[in-house]
Computed example of a mutant assay.
Amino acid sequence: MQKVYLLYHIRDKGAEDEDTKDIGTYSSYELAEAAKNRIKDKPGFIDHPNGFYIDEYIIDKDYWADGFHD
């Protein structure tokens, strides 16, 4: 089972408004964390240090297979 790690950043702009940036996809959690450390002091990111997230995904697996409801 092969996994990848998606690093992204969410800036909460209030009132159900978010600005999401996909930063990169990495072959290990450690590489995703290293990427976060490289950019966390860059403009925009430095002002929102708690907006970083790393999610693990299994390759060739369906996500949201049952759909979603608003």
Rank of each mutant, 00 (worst) to 15 (best):
Y5C: 06
Y5A: 02
L6D: 04
L7T: 00
Y8E: 08
Y8D: 03
H9K: 03
I10V: 08
R11L: 03
K13M: 13
A15S: 06
D17E: 14
E18V: 12
E18G: 08
E18Y: 13
E18C: 12
D19R: 14
T20N: 11
T20P: 05
T20K: 13
K21Q: 07
K21C: 10
K21M: 09
K21T: 09
D22S: 11
D22R: 11
T25N: 07
S28R: 01
Y29T: 08
E30W: 07
K36S: 00
D41M: 08
K42G: 11
G44I: 08
G44C: 06
F45P: 00
I46Q: 03
I46D: 06
I46S: 04
I46A: 07
D47F: 10
H48I: 05
H48C: 05
H48Y: 10
P49I: 11
N50S: 12
G51T: 01
G51K: 02
D55P: 03
I58C: 10
I58D: 13
I58P: 02
D60G: 01
K61A: 08
D62Y: 09
D62V: 06
Y63H: 08
D66F: 10
G67L: 01
G67N: 00
F68I: 13
F68V: 14
F68H: 14
D70S: 08
D70G: 05
